[in-house]
Design a binder for these strands. Structure first.
Lengths: 220, 220
DNA sequence: TTTATATTTCACGAATTTTTCACTGTTATG
DNA sequence: CATAACAGTGAAAAATTCGTGAAATATAAA
Protein backbone atom coordinates (compact mmCIF):
# COMPACT_ATOMS: atom_id res chain seq x y z
CA UNK A 1 0.00 0.00 0.00
CA UNK A 2 1.59 3.22 -1.20
CA UNK A 3 0.25 6.29 0.56
CA UNK A 4 1.05 9.85 -0.46
CA UNK A 5 0.76 12.24 2.46
CA UNK A 6 0.37 15.87 1.50
CA UNK A 7 0.50 18.47 4.26
CA UNK A 8 2.65 21.51 4.91
CA UNK A 9 3.03 20.64 8.59
CA UNK A 10 5.85 18.21 9.07
CA UNK A 11 4.46 17.08 12.39
CA UNK A 12 1.26 15.86 10.84
CA UNK A 13 3.11 14.13 8.04
CA UNK A 14 5.27 12.33 10.55
CA UNK A 15 2.38 11.11 12.64
CA UNK A 16 0.51 9.77 9.62
CA UNK A 17 3.64 8.26 8.16
CA UNK A 18 4.28 6.39 11.36
CA UNK A 19 0.80 4.89 11.30
CA UNK A 20 1.04 3.94 7.66
CA UNK A 21 4.35 2.24 8.17
CA UNK A 22 3.16 0.54 11.32
CA UNK A 23 0.50 -1.11 9.21
CA UNK A 24 3.08 -2.21 6.69
CA UNK A 25 2.47 0.47 4.08
CA UNK A 26 4.88 2.73 2.28
CA UNK A 27 4.52 6.43 3.03
CA UNK A 28 5.60 9.22 0.69
CA UNK A 29 5.49 12.90 1.56
CA UNK A 30 4.75 16.14 -0.20
CA UNK A 31 4.77 19.54 1.51
CA UNK A 32 2.32 21.26 -0.80
CA UNK A 33 -0.08 20.73 -3.69
CA UNK A 34 2.41 21.56 -6.39
CA UNK A 35 4.81 18.93 -5.13
CA UNK A 36 1.98 16.40 -4.88
CA UNK A 37 0.93 16.99 -8.47
CA UNK A 38 4.48 16.45 -9.66
CA UNK A 39 4.93 13.30 -7.63
CA UNK A 40 1.71 11.88 -9.02
CA UNK A 41 2.90 12.46 -12.52
CA UNK A 42 6.06 10.57 -11.80
CA UNK A 43 4.67 7.64 -9.83
CA UNK A 44 1.47 5.83 -8.88
CA UNK A 45 0.07 5.78 -5.38
CA UNK A 46 -2.77 3.74 -3.97
CA UNK A 47 -4.28 6.58 -1.99
CA UNK A 48 -3.61 10.21 -1.19
CA UNK A 49 -4.16 12.01 2.10
CA UNK A 50 -4.48 15.64 1.10
CA UNK A 51 -4.56 18.70 3.29
CA UNK A 52 -6.71 21.58 2.05
CA UNK A 53 -4.81 24.65 3.19
CA UNK A 54 -1.28 24.65 1.90
CA UNK A 55 1.11 27.18 0.39
CA UNK A 56 1.69 27.37 -3.37
CA UNK A 57 -1.19 25.11 -4.40
CA UNK A 58 -4.14 24.24 -2.16
CA UNK A 59 -5.49 20.73 -1.76
CA UNK A 60 -8.63 21.21 -3.83
CA UNK A 61 -6.72 22.49 -6.84
CA UNK A 62 -4.15 19.76 -6.49
CA UNK A 63 -6.79 17.02 -6.43
CA UNK A 64 -8.54 18.53 -9.42
CA UNK A 65 -5.29 18.53 -11.29
CA UNK A 66 -4.29 15.00 -10.35
CA UNK A 67 -7.72 13.59 -11.16
CA UNK A 68 -7.45 14.95 -14.65
CA UNK A 69 -4.91 12.29 -15.41
CA UNK A 70 -5.32 9.55 -12.85
CA UNK A 71 -8.11 8.19 -10.81
CA UNK A 72 -6.57 7.80 -7.36
CA UNK A 73 -8.60 7.65 -4.15
CA UNK A 74 -8.24 10.82 -2.11
CA UNK A 75 -9.09 11.62 1.46
CA UNK A 76 -9.16 15.32 2.24
CA UNK A 77 -7.86 16.62 5.55
CA UNK A 78 -9.26 19.98 6.53
CA UNK A 79 -8.79 22.33 9.44
CA UNK A 80 -12.08 23.94 8.63
CA UNK A 81 -15.13 21.89 9.38
CA UNK A 82 -17.41 23.88 7.15
CA UNK A 83 -20.02 22.12 5.12
CA UNK A 84 -19.06 24.13 2.07
CA UNK A 85 -15.53 22.76 2.04
CA UNK A 86 -16.82 19.29 2.49
CA UNK A 87 -19.16 19.51 -0.46
CA UNK A 88 -16.58 21.12 -2.62
CA UNK A 89 -14.20 18.35 -1.72
CA UNK A 90 -16.63 15.70 -2.90
CA UNK A 91 -17.49 17.67 -5.98
CA UNK A 92 -13.95 17.63 -7.22
CA UNK A 93 -13.74 13.91 -6.64
CA UNK A 94 -12.51 13.38 -3.09
CA UNK A 95 -13.61 10.06 -1.66
CA UNK A 96 -13.76 10.99 1.98
CA UNK A 97 -13.29 13.96 4.18
CA UNK A 98 -11.72 14.21 7.63
CA UNK A 99 -11.87 17.28 9.83
CA UNK A 100 -8.93 18.37 11.90
CA UNK A 101 -8.15 17.72 14.63
CA UNK A 102 -8.37 14.06 13.74
CA UNK A 103 -7.07 10.94 15.37
CA UNK A 104 -4.61 9.04 13.17
CA UNK A 105 -6.56 5.90 13.96
CA UNK A 106 -9.69 7.41 12.43
CA UNK A 107 -7.78 8.42 9.33
CA UNK A 108 -6.40 4.93 8.91
CA UNK A 109 -9.86 3.45 9.33
CA UNK A 110 -11.10 5.67 6.54
CA UNK A 111 -8.15 4.77 4.36
CA UNK A 112 -9.11 1.14 4.64
CA UNK A 113 -12.77 1.90 4.02
CA UNK A 114 -12.02 3.89 0.88
CA UNK A 115 -9.59 1.31 -0.47
CA UNK A 116 -12.12 -1.41 0.19
CA UNK A 117 -14.76 0.52 -1.68
CA UNK A 118 -12.38 0.89 -4.60
CA UNK A 119 -11.46 -2.77 -4.68
CA UNK A 120 -15.06 -3.92 -4.22
CA UNK A 121 -16.23 -2.35 -7.45
CA UNK A 122 -13.36 -2.78 -9.83
CA UNK A 123 -14.55 -3.23 -13.39
CA UNK A 124 -17.82 -1.37 -13.05
CA UNK A 125 -17.07 1.39 -15.50
CA UNK A 126 -15.20 -0.43 -18.22
CA UNK A 127 -17.06 -1.08 -21.43
CA UNK A 128 -15.97 -2.53 -24.75
CA UNK A 129 -17.32 -2.24 -28.25
CA UNK A 130 -15.47 -4.66 -30.47
CA UNK A 131 -11.80 -3.67 -30.17
CA UNK A 132 -12.58 -0.36 -28.49
CA UNK A 133 -12.27 -0.47 -24.73
CA UNK A 134 -13.27 2.47 -22.58
CA UNK A 135 -12.35 2.63 -18.91
CA UNK A 136 -14.13 5.63 -17.52
CA UNK A 137 -12.96 5.22 -13.96
CA UNK A 138 -9.33 4.84 -14.92
CA UNK A 139 -9.64 7.35 -17.76
CA UNK A 140 -8.16 5.01 -20.32
CA UNK A 141 -9.17 4.20 -23.85
CA UNK A 142 -7.74 1.30 -25.81
CA UNK A 143 -7.92 0.78 -29.55
CA UNK A 144 -7.19 -2.87 -30.30
CA UNK A 145 -5.32 -3.13 -27.02
CA UNK A 146 -3.21 -0.10 -27.67
CA UNK A 147 -3.71 2.91 -25.43
CA UNK A 148 -5.17 5.88 -27.25
CA UNK A 149 -3.79 9.22 -26.14
CA UNK A 150 -6.81 11.47 -25.98
CA UNK A 151 -6.97 15.04 -24.81
CA UNK A 152 -9.16 15.82 -21.78
CA UNK A 153 -12.04 17.08 -23.93
CA UNK A 154 -11.86 14.01 -26.10
CA UNK A 155 -12.18 11.77 -23.04
CA UNK A 156 -15.13 13.76 -21.78
CA UNK A 157 -16.90 13.63 -25.11
CA UNK A 158 -16.31 9.93 -25.50
CA UNK A 159 -17.49 9.16 -21.95
CA UNK A 160 -20.57 11.28 -22.50
CA UNK A 161 -21.22 9.47 -25.74
CA UNK A 162 -20.95 6.09 -24.05
CA UNK A 163 -23.28 7.13 -21.26
CA UNK A 164 -25.76 8.24 -23.91
CA UNK A 165 -25.25 5.42 -26.33
CA UNK A 166 -27.78 5.31 -29.15
CA UNK A 167 -29.26 8.69 -28.31
CA UNK A 168 -29.29 11.51 -30.84
CA UNK A 169 -27.37 14.46 -29.42
CA UNK A 170 -27.47 17.98 -30.75
CA UNK A 171 -24.39 20.16 -30.71
CA UNK A 172 -26.17 22.35 -28.21
CA UNK A 173 -26.76 19.46 -25.85
CA UNK A 174 -23.16 18.34 -26.14
CA UNK A 175 -21.90 21.84 -25.44
CA UNK A 176 -24.30 22.16 -22.53
CA UNK A 177 -23.38 18.88 -20.87
CA UNK A 178 -19.73 18.42 -21.75
CA UNK A 179 -18.51 22.01 -21.92
CA UNK A 180 -20.96 23.45 -19.40
CA UNK A 181 -23.75 25.98 -19.54
CA UNK A 182 -21.28 28.85 -19.55
CA UNK A 183 -19.69 28.12 -22.90
CA UNK A 184 -20.43 30.92 -25.31
CA UNK A 185 -18.57 29.79 -28.35
CA UNK A 186 -19.13 28.46 -31.80
CA UNK A 187 -21.26 25.34 -32.36
CA UNK A 188 -18.74 24.07 -34.82
CA UNK A 189 -16.12 23.67 -32.10
CA UNK A 190 -17.86 20.37 -31.49
CA UNK A 191 -17.10 19.27 -35.04
CA UNK A 192 -13.41 19.85 -34.63
CA UNK A 193 -13.29 17.80 -31.45
CA UNK A 194 -15.29 15.04 -33.11
CA UNK A 195 -12.77 15.08 -35.92
CA UNK A 196 -9.87 14.65 -33.50
CA UNK A 197 -11.69 12.01 -31.49
CA UNK A 198 -12.53 10.05 -34.61
CA UNK A 199 -8.98 10.17 -35.82
CA UNK A 200 -7.81 8.81 -32.46
CA UNK A 201 -10.36 6.02 -32.47
CA UNK A 202 -8.97 4.81 -35.80
CA UNK A 203 -11.26 2.19 -37.31
CA UNK A 204 -13.75 2.60 -34.48
CA UNK A 205 -14.55 6.07 -35.71
CA UNK A 206 -17.55 4.28 -37.19
CA UNK A 207 -19.26 4.33 -33.80
CA UNK A 208 -19.59 8.09 -33.96
CA UNK A 209 -22.42 8.69 -36.37
CA UNK A 210 -23.11 12.07 -37.92
CA UNK A 211 -26.77 13.05 -37.83
CA UNK A 212 -27.00 15.60 -40.56
CA UNK A 213 -28.90 18.68 -39.55
CA UNK A 214 -28.81 17.66 -35.91
CA UNK A 215 -25.57 16.56 -34.35
CA UNK A 216 -24.02 13.22 -33.50
CA UNK A 217 -24.65 9.99 -31.72
CA UNK A 218 -22.62 7.07 -30.50
CA UNK A 219 -23.93 3.83 -31.88
CA UNK A 220 -22.36 0.47 -31.21
CA UNK B 1 -33.82 10.38 -17.04
CA UNK B 2 -35.75 12.91 -14.97
CA UNK B 3 -34.39 13.26 -11.45
CA UNK B 4 -36.07 15.24 -8.71
CA UNK B 5 -33.57 16.48 -6.15
CA UNK B 6 -35.07 17.45 -2.82
CA UNK B 7 -32.82 19.15 -0.29
CA UNK B 8 -32.97 22.42 1.57
CA UNK B 9 -29.30 23.10 0.96
CA UNK B 10 -28.76 24.70 -2.40
CA UNK B 11 -25.13 23.61 -2.51
CA UNK B 12 -26.04 19.94 -2.31
CA UNK B 13 -28.73 20.35 -4.96
CA UNK B 14 -26.26 22.02 -7.28
CA UNK B 15 -23.63 19.33 -6.95
CA UNK B 16 -26.09 16.53 -7.63
CA UNK B 17 -27.68 18.46 -10.45
CA UNK B 18 -24.35 18.83 -12.15
CA UNK B 19 -23.71 15.10 -12.01
CA UNK B 20 -27.17 14.25 -13.29
CA UNK B 21 -26.84 16.62 -16.20
CA UNK B 22 -23.41 15.40 -17.16
CA UNK B 23 -24.89 11.98 -17.61
CA UNK B 24 -27.52 13.45 -19.86
CA UNK B 25 -30.35 13.49 -17.35
CA UNK B 26 -32.70 16.30 -16.47
CA UNK B 27 -32.52 17.58 -12.92
CA UNK B 28 -35.38 19.26 -11.11
CA UNK B 29 -35.12 20.83 -7.70
CA UNK B 30 -37.30 21.18 -4.66
CA UNK B 31 -36.20 22.89 -1.46
CA UNK B 32 -38.47 21.00 0.91
CA UNK B 33 -40.89 18.12 1.17
CA UNK B 34 -43.97 20.22 0.58
CA UNK B 35 -42.59 21.49 -2.70
CA UNK B 36 -41.56 17.98 -3.71
CA UNK B 37 -45.06 16.62 -3.13
CA UNK B 38 -46.55 19.39 -5.24
CA UNK B 39 -44.06 18.83 -8.04
CA UNK B 40 -44.79 15.12 -8.07
CA UNK B 41 -48.48 15.81 -8.41
CA UNK B 42 -47.82 18.02 -11.42
CA UNK B 43 -45.22 15.95 -13.26
CA UNK B 44 -43.62 12.53 -13.44
CA UNK B 45 -40.03 11.84 -12.47
CA UNK B 46 -37.98 8.71 -12.91
CA UNK B 47 -36.35 8.87 -9.51
CA UNK B 48 -36.27 11.09 -6.45
CA UNK B 49 -33.28 11.94 -4.28
CA UNK B 50 -34.81 12.96 -0.99
CA UNK B 51 -33.17 14.55 2.02
CA UNK B 52 -34.61 13.59 5.38
CA UNK B 53 -34.28 16.74 7.43
CA UNK B 54 -35.99 19.67 5.78
CA UNK B 55 -38.19 22.57 6.85
CA UNK B 56 -41.98 22.50 6.35
CA UNK B 57 -42.24 18.80 5.50
CA UNK B 58 -39.55 16.22 6.22
CA UNK B 59 -38.37 13.64 3.70
CA UNK B 60 -40.07 10.64 5.27
CA UNK B 61 -43.46 12.30 5.32
CA UNK B 62 -42.98 13.57 1.78
CA UNK B 63 -42.15 10.11 0.46
CA UNK B 64 -45.14 8.64 2.27
CA UNK B 65 -47.37 11.23 0.66
CA UNK B 66 -45.92 10.82 -2.82
CA UNK B 67 -46.05 7.03 -2.75
CA UNK B 68 -49.79 7.22 -2.07
CA UNK B 69 -50.32 8.26 -5.68
CA UNK B 70 -47.31 7.20 -7.65
CA UNK B 71 -44.74 4.48 -7.43
CA UNK B 72 -41.49 6.32 -8.00
CA UNK B 73 -38.08 5.05 -6.92
CA UNK B 74 -36.67 7.03 -4.02
CA UNK B 75 -33.19 7.29 -2.59
CA UNK B 76 -33.02 8.89 0.84
CA UNK B 77 -30.17 11.19 1.78
CA UNK B 78 -29.62 11.55 5.47
CA UNK B 79 -27.30 13.62 7.57
CA UNK B 80 -27.83 11.30 10.47
CA UNK B 81 -26.18 7.97 10.21
CA UNK B 82 -28.53 6.32 12.64
CA UNK B 83 -29.71 2.86 12.01
CA UNK B 84 -33.18 3.86 13.05
CA UNK B 85 -33.52 6.34 10.19
CA UNK B 86 -32.30 3.78 7.75
CA UNK B 87 -34.80 1.20 8.85
CA UNK B 88 -37.60 3.71 8.87
CA UNK B 89 -36.60 4.84 5.40
CA UNK B 90 -36.90 1.37 3.94
CA UNK B 91 -40.11 0.79 5.83
CA UNK B 92 -41.88 3.67 4.13
CA UNK B 93 -40.74 2.52 0.71
CA UNK B 94 -37.37 4.08 0.04
CA UNK B 95 -35.30 2.04 -2.40
CA UNK B 96 -31.90 2.98 -1.12
CA UNK B 97 -30.32 5.02 1.58
CA UNK B 98 -27.19 7.17 1.48
CA UNK B 99 -25.57 8.75 4.49
CA UNK B 100 -24.10 12.21 4.36
CA UNK B 101 -21.45 13.12 3.70
CA UNK B 102 -21.70 11.23 0.45
CA UNK B 103 -19.74 11.40 -2.76
CA UNK B 104 -21.91 12.38 -5.72
CA UNK B 105 -20.35 9.55 -7.67
CA UNK B 106 -21.64 7.07 -5.15
CA UNK B 107 -25.10 8.58 -5.30
CA UNK B 108 -25.14 8.37 -9.09
CA UNK B 109 -24.02 4.76 -8.94
CA UNK B 110 -26.93 4.01 -6.66
CA UNK B 111 -29.31 5.92 -8.90
CA UNK B 112 -28.31 3.67 -11.76
CA UNK B 113 -28.56 0.57 -9.65
CA UNK B 114 -32.06 1.45 -8.47
CA UNK B 115 -33.26 2.40 -11.94
CA UNK B 116 -31.84 -0.79 -13.35
CA UNK B 117 -33.67 -2.73 -10.70
CA UNK B 118 -36.89 -0.98 -11.62
CA UNK B 119 -36.63 -1.76 -15.28
CA UNK B 120 -33.87 -3.46 -17.15
CA UNK B 121 -35.11 -1.86 -20.33
CA UNK B 122 -34.78 1.89 -20.36
CA UNK B 123 -37.93 3.67 -21.40
CA UNK B 124 -37.58 5.27 -24.77
CA UNK B 125 -40.06 6.57 -27.26
CA UNK B 126 -40.00 3.87 -29.90
CA UNK B 127 -43.28 3.30 -31.69
CA UNK B 128 -44.30 0.85 -34.39
CA UNK B 129 -47.08 0.81 -36.94
CA UNK B 130 -47.09 -2.56 -38.65
CA UNK B 131 -43.64 -2.84 -40.24
CA UNK B 132 -42.79 0.80 -39.69
CA UNK B 133 -40.70 1.45 -36.60
CA UNK B 134 -39.89 4.93 -35.44
CA UNK B 135 -37.25 5.58 -32.77
CA UNK B 136 -37.26 9.26 -31.97
CA UNK B 137 -34.59 9.15 -29.28
CA UNK B 138 -32.09 7.41 -31.50
CA UNK B 139 -33.32 9.10 -34.67
CA UNK B 140 -33.92 5.86 -36.49
CA UNK B 141 -36.70 4.77 -38.81
CA UNK B 142 -37.04 1.20 -39.96
CA UNK B 143 -39.13 -0.06 -42.86
CA UNK B 144 -39.63 -3.80 -42.45
CA UNK B 145 -36.51 -3.97 -40.36
CA UNK B 146 -34.41 -2.06 -42.83
CA UNK B 147 -33.11 1.33 -41.84
CA UNK B 148 -34.61 4.15 -43.86
CA UNK B 149 -32.23 6.99 -44.66
CA UNK B 150 -34.27 10.13 -44.23
CA UNK B 151 -33.14 13.72 -44.54
CA UNK B 152 -33.38 15.98 -41.49
CA UNK B 153 -36.67 17.56 -42.59
CA UNK B 154 -38.13 14.16 -43.32
CA UNK B 155 -37.30 12.98 -39.80
CA UNK B 156 -38.82 16.08 -38.33
CA UNK B 157 -41.97 15.80 -40.38
CA UNK B 158 -42.39 12.14 -39.56
CA UNK B 159 -41.79 12.69 -35.84
CA UNK B 160 -44.24 15.56 -35.90
CA UNK B 161 -46.78 13.36 -37.65
CA UNK B 162 -46.37 10.62 -35.09
CA UNK B 163 -46.79 13.05 -32.23
CA UNK B 164 -49.96 14.30 -33.90
CA UNK B 165 -51.27 10.99 -35.05
CA UNK B 166 -54.82 11.15 -36.42
CA UNK B 167 -54.90 14.93 -36.38
CA UNK B 168 -55.55 16.92 -39.55
CA UNK B 169 -52.65 19.25 -40.25
CA UNK B 170 -52.75 22.14 -42.67
CA UNK B 171 -49.67 23.08 -44.65
CA UNK B 172 -49.57 26.28 -42.65
CA UNK B 173 -49.51 24.40 -39.36
CA UNK B 174 -46.80 22.08 -40.61
CA UNK B 175 -44.68 24.98 -41.80
CA UNK B 176 -45.22 26.76 -38.51
CA UNK B 177 -44.33 23.83 -36.28
CA UNK B 178 -41.75 21.93 -38.31
CA UNK B 179 -40.08 24.74 -40.24
CA UNK B 180 -40.62 27.48 -37.69
CA UNK B 181 -42.47 30.76 -37.60
CA UNK B 182 -39.80 32.47 -39.65
CA UNK B 183 -40.27 30.51 -42.82
CA UNK B 184 -41.46 32.75 -45.66
CA UNK B 185 -41.57 30.35 -48.55
CA UNK B 186 -44.00 28.53 -50.73
CA UNK B 187 -46.74 26.35 -49.22
CA UNK B 188 -46.08 23.72 -51.80
CA UNK B 189 -42.63 23.04 -50.36
CA UNK B 190 -44.49 20.80 -47.95
CA UNK B 191 -45.76 18.69 -50.85
CA UNK B 192 -42.29 18.02 -52.11
CA UNK B 193 -41.13 16.84 -48.70
CA UNK B 194 -44.20 14.66 -48.31
CA UNK B 195 -43.37 13.17 -51.67
CA UNK B 196 -39.83 12.31 -50.56
CA UNK B 197 -40.96 11.02 -47.20
CA UNK B 198 -43.58 8.80 -48.78
CA UNK B 199 -41.10 7.40 -51.20
CA UNK B 200 -38.77 6.53 -48.32
CA UNK B 201 -41.53 4.88 -46.30
CA UNK B 202 -42.20 2.51 -49.21
CA UNK B 203 -45.43 0.61 -48.62
CA UNK B 204 -46.08 2.50 -45.41
CA UNK B 205 -46.66 5.65 -47.42
CA UNK B 206 -50.29 4.73 -46.84
CA UNK B 207 -50.09 6.16 -43.33
CA UNK B 208 -49.68 9.65 -44.75
CA UNK B 209 -53.14 10.62 -45.89
CA UNK B 210 -53.82 13.57 -48.16
CA UNK B 211 -56.69 15.77 -47.04
CA UNK B 212 -57.69 17.50 -50.17
CA UNK B 213 -58.13 21.24 -49.76
CA UNK B 214 -56.58 21.07 -46.27
CA UNK B 215 -53.29 19.34 -45.85
CA UNK B 216 -52.19 15.97 -44.50
CA UNK B 217 -52.53 13.68 -41.58
CA UNK B 218 -50.77 10.62 -40.24
CA UNK B 219 -53.20 7.80 -39.65
CA UNK B 220 -52.19 4.36 -38.45
C1' DT C 1 10.42 33.83 -20.23
C1' DT C 2 10.06 29.91 -24.00
C1' DT C 3 8.08 25.70 -25.44
C1' DA C 4 4.65 22.46 -25.88
C1' DT C 5 -0.02 21.09 -25.83
C1' DA C 6 -4.87 21.85 -26.09
C1' DT C 7 -8.76 24.39 -27.56
C1' DT C 8 -11.23 27.40 -30.47
C1' DT C 9 -12.24 29.87 -34.61
C1' DC C 10 -12.75 30.09 -39.36
C1' DA C 11 -12.98 29.56 -44.36
C1' DC C 12 -12.98 26.39 -48.32
C1' DG C 13 -15.01 22.74 -50.96
C1' DA C 14 -17.69 18.62 -51.52
C1' DA C 15 -21.80 16.58 -50.73
C1' DT C 16 -26.37 16.79 -49.36
C1' DT C 17 -30.63 19.03 -48.56
C1' DT C 18 -34.11 22.34 -49.40
C1' DT C 19 -36.72 25.15 -52.25
C1' DT C 20 -38.86 26.62 -56.34
C1' DC C 21 -41.48 25.86 -60.29
C1' DA C 22 -43.43 24.16 -64.37
C1' DC C 23 -45.91 20.41 -65.86
C1' DT C 24 -49.01 16.40 -65.22
C1' DG C 25 -52.59 13.93 -63.11
C1' DT C 26 -56.67 13.86 -60.15
C1' DT C 27 -60.88 15.26 -58.01
C1' DA C 28 -65.15 17.93 -57.18
C1' DT C 29 -68.90 20.15 -58.89
C1' DG C 30 -71.91 22.77 -61.89
C1' DC D 1 -68.46 16.98 -70.06
C1' DA D 2 -65.91 20.95 -69.00
C1' DT D 3 -63.41 23.33 -65.98
C1' DA D 4 -61.21 25.02 -62.09
C1' DA D 5 -58.83 24.03 -58.05
C1' DC D 6 -55.74 21.08 -56.04
C1' DA D 7 -52.13 17.54 -55.37
C1' DG D 8 -48.18 14.62 -57.30
C1' DT D 9 -43.87 14.76 -59.64
C1' DG D 10 -39.22 15.59 -61.75
C1' DA D 11 -35.60 18.46 -62.40
C1' DA D 12 -32.86 22.60 -61.80
C1' DA D 13 -31.36 26.19 -58.75
C1' DA D 14 -30.34 27.81 -54.26
C1' DA D 15 -29.06 27.07 -49.67
C1' DT D 16 -27.23 24.54 -45.98
C1' DT D 17 -24.31 21.38 -43.66
C1' DC D 18 -20.27 18.85 -42.54
C1' DG D 19 -15.35 17.48 -42.73
C1' DT D 20 -11.13 19.32 -42.94
C1' DG D 21 -6.70 21.93 -42.56
C1' DA D 22 -4.63 25.78 -40.92
C1' DA D 23 -4.26 29.72 -38.10
C1' DA D 24 -5.24 31.98 -33.78
C1' DT D 25 -5.84 31.80 -29.05
C1' DA D 26 -5.62 29.76 -24.51
C1' DT D 27 -3.64 26.86 -21.18
C1' DA D 28 -0.09 24.24 -19.09
C1' DA D 29 4.83 22.66 -18.74
C1' DA D 30 9.79 23.37 -18.75
Amino acid sequence: MKVLIVDDEEMIRNVLKEYVEFEGGEAYEAADGMEAVKMCRAADYDIILMDVMMPRLDGFSAVKEIKKNKNIPVIMLSARGEEYDKLFGFEIGADDYVTKPFSPKEVMARVHAVLKRYSDEPASDIVSFEGLTIDMTGRNVYVDGEKAELTPKEYEILFYFVKNKGIALTREKLLMDVWGFDFYGDDRTVDTHIKMLRSNLKQYRKFIVTLRGLGYKFEA
